[in-house]
Every structure is written in structure tokens, then in C-alpha cells.
Amino acid sequence: MRKTKIDPWSEEWEKSYCHEEGKLKEVLKDELVDIFHIGSTSIPTVGYAKPIIDILIVVRNIVNVDLYKSKMLILGYESKGENGIAGRRYFTKGKDNRTHHVHIFQMGSEFIKTHLNFKEYLLQNPIEAKKYGELKINLAKQYPEVHHKYQEEKQQFVNKLVGKANEWARQRNSPKLGN
């Protein structure tokens, strides 16, 4: 059973992402459109995170990602299929001691915008980011041995943040009257 482990934010997480980014670009080069470091390990102002690097990959054709499963396995990634999100390919690295999660979506997927809006919103709103980090610490203390409870309660907060982030992004991108 996975335990809930939360660490203080570390610059090492960006280094880990960069190291993995190069490997993933090489494997998926024929399908790759873009790649991003997402999640709490990419947002210093959150302050705390599970030490798992989340990576968002945008590809031309999601179905073709299935052709790369054996190459991903060589890198240590286990394929989880869509894992509850239609149109996604999800890979984990590290079994019960996970180090990386890879979320792959086809160009145009709304999930891409949602993930990137969430990250940018927290980067631009450090008070919200700090609240998120504090929630993680409190939930980890409350559910150190029951990871799914930690995830369930955190998800409620995340859903509210996603709503705020998407509204924030809409307002930023809407044309201003009189300009």
C-alpha cells in the first residue's frame, strides 16, 4: 500500500524533470508536440509536494502512443492506459515508490489547458499556492497510511482551484473593451 509522503519543495525536482524530459523526448520524438513540468513539484510557492514529478506531454495522435509502451517500459514506466480519463495515456515510474507520472494527451485536449492554467494560476497567486501546500501537509498528517483518503480530500480542494484557474485564464484571455 502506498503511503502519503510530503516533502518541502526542492530545486532537485526541476533537475529531475529536465533529466526525464530528454529521455521522453527521445522516445516520443515522432509524435511529440510539446512537454511540460506540471503539478506541485513545478510550483515553488506551493512549498510542499509528494516527491513525484508530473509531466504533461502533448502528442499528435493519442492512439499512436500505444506503439511506444515497450520503449516506455525500458525507461521504467508502467502503462496504466487511460486510468480514468478518456483520451489520456498515463504512465507511472517507481511502482509503490513512485518518482514520475506521465500524462499524455492529444493536441486540442481540454485537459492540456486545464493543467497549464492550474500551474500558471498558482505561480501567479502565491497565497493560493501556499494554502494548497498547507492542505497537503495537514492531509498527509491526517492520512499517512491511507493514501486514497488523502487523495480524495485533496481532490475537493483541487477541483475548486481548477475552477478558479480556468476562470482566471478566461478573464486574462478575453478581449478588453475599448482597446
Rank of each mutant, 00 (worst) to 15 (best):
N179C: 10
Q124Y: 08
P144S: 03
V59N: 06
E20S: 01
E167A: 11
I6M: 01
G81F: 05
G81P: 03
P51H: 02
L161E: 04
I6L: 02
K69M: 07
A140N: 06
Y17G: 02
I6T: 04
G39C: 11
I53S: 04
Q106F: 04
H103D: 10
F105M: 09
S16A: 14
K119W: 03
N125W: 03
K149M: 15
I52P: 08
A140K: 08
L135K: 14
Y121F: 15
G81R: 05
N61P: 00
K154P: 01
F91G: 05
L75A: 01
Y77D: 09
V158K: 01
Q171R: 12
E82V: 09
A49P: 06
H100S: 02
K113F: 10
F118M: 13
P51V: 02
Y77G: 05
Y121R: 01
D96M: 14
A140V: 06
K176E: 12
Y90A: 03
V65F: 08
D54C: 06
Y68C: 12
I137S: 00
E20K: 04
K131G: 00
Q106L: 09
S10F: 03
S109W: 00
V27A: 08
L56E: 07
D30R: 11
I104Q: 03
S79F: 09
K131A: 03
R2I: 06
E82Q: 14
